[in-house]
């Protein structure tokens, strides 16, 4: 039996209460959401917080819905809830593509979107997906609420813009008319972390690419993004050649490291191949008209806490 070191436990009853607890217990305290990253680390004694502050009961962090052309995702939204939501699937198929291959149903029932981003594992799938769609993170601290573009949220492996004493409260993703997206991942086995994965969003305007968003994970891409490839695509007509070239550019600009999932050369190859595939699939979806349309949006819906 693997057992964590001793710790104290506090249950937060509201966001202000959670913030107050964080302040009271200081840097040796940790927020716990789904616990699917934190508890394994505690059992291996790689993490040894003195106090766990449980935010699982907080309704106000579980909101999932569309507000003013923005998809709003509370930090406590579970993977399973995110995956089951039809509005998410309609506007951002990239999230459903990704969620289908994140972990397994047991982990997805409990793990949260906010926990995934705050864990900031360099192989995290949602980080790449949110980077592709250029989301905004909303962070709340004792001083109030601030917004951070997702591409400035991650500061490095396991490091984010959320300071001690702060909480990630939600993510905001603008719905862009005419945009379509997709996510492609290679894993060694169902439920495994990615060997490499890529997400792409394309907004077409008059037959050319008005804006491309490309996310990459597990290949050492800074901020989980591929800005050089995005720039290359801007103004180009979508097509096999352009997508392949974008893949080549993305592959050349990432910095994968060898591990038991594969040698660096393979991961670099995958970065290119998966960017190409994600772009192709996103473009296919745009052509099929499954792109984000204005008008047909679902109303606000509360998720379960």
């Amino acid at each position: 039996m693997q057992v964590p070191a001793r710790f104290e436990y506090e249950r937060a009853s509201s966001v202000p209460h959670a913030l107050a607890l964080l302040e009271r217990y200081g840097p040796e305290s940790r927020v716990i959401a789904g616990g699917h990253s934190l508890i394994p680390m505690m059992k291996l004694r790689l993490a040894r917080p003195d106090v766990l502050i449980d935010i699982n009961g907080l309704e106000e962090l579980s909101f999932l819905g569309v507000e003013d052309d923005v998809l709003v995702i509370g930090a406590l939204v579970r993977h399973a809830q995110f995956l089951a939501d039809p509005a998410v699937g309609r506007y951002f198929p990239i999230f459903h593509d990704a969620e289908r291959v994140i972990a397994d149903p047991v982990v997805r029932n409990r793990g949260t979107v906010g926990g995934s981003l705050c864990q900031a594992d360099p192989s995290e799938d949602l980080s790449a997906a949110f980077a592709a769609v250029r989301a905004t993170a909303v962070i709340q601290g004792p001083g109030g609420v601030r917004e951070v573009p997702i591409r400035r949220f991650h500061r490095g492996p396991y490091e984010t813009a959320v300071e001690p004493g702060e909480l990630l409260v939600r993510l905001r993703v603008p719905i862009r008319p005419g945009a379509a997206s997709a996510y492609e991942k290679v894993e060694r086995r169902a439920g495994d972390w990615p060997v490499a994965a890529a997400g792409a969003q394309l907004r077409l305007d008059g037959g050319v690419i008005a804006e491309a968003g490309i996310g990459l994970t597990a290949v050492g891409a800074e901020h989980f993004a591929a800005p050089e490839a995005e720039e290359y695509l801007a103004g180009k007509a979508p097509g096999a050649e352009a997508f392949a070239e974008a893949g080549r550019i993305a592959a050349a600009n990432c910095a994968p490291r060898a591990d038991q999932r594969g040698p660096a050369a393979y991961k670099r190859h995958l970065a290119g191949e998966l960017v190409r595939r994600a772009l192709t699939r996103a473009a296919g979806r745009a052509a099929e008209g499954t792109a984000q349309g204005a008008g047909d949006r679902t109303g606000d819906r509360r998720g379960e806490g």
């Binding site: 290679v186 060694r188 060997v195 999932r261 594969g262 040698p263 050369a265 393979y266 190859h269």
Partner: peptide, 15 residues
């Protein structure tokens, strides 16, 4: 024969 190994074999350098 992981994906990495299969791909490496295709490049002539199995793991």
């Amino acid at each position: 024969l992981t994906p990495a190994n299969v791909w490496s074999a295709l490049q002539g350098t199995p793991i």
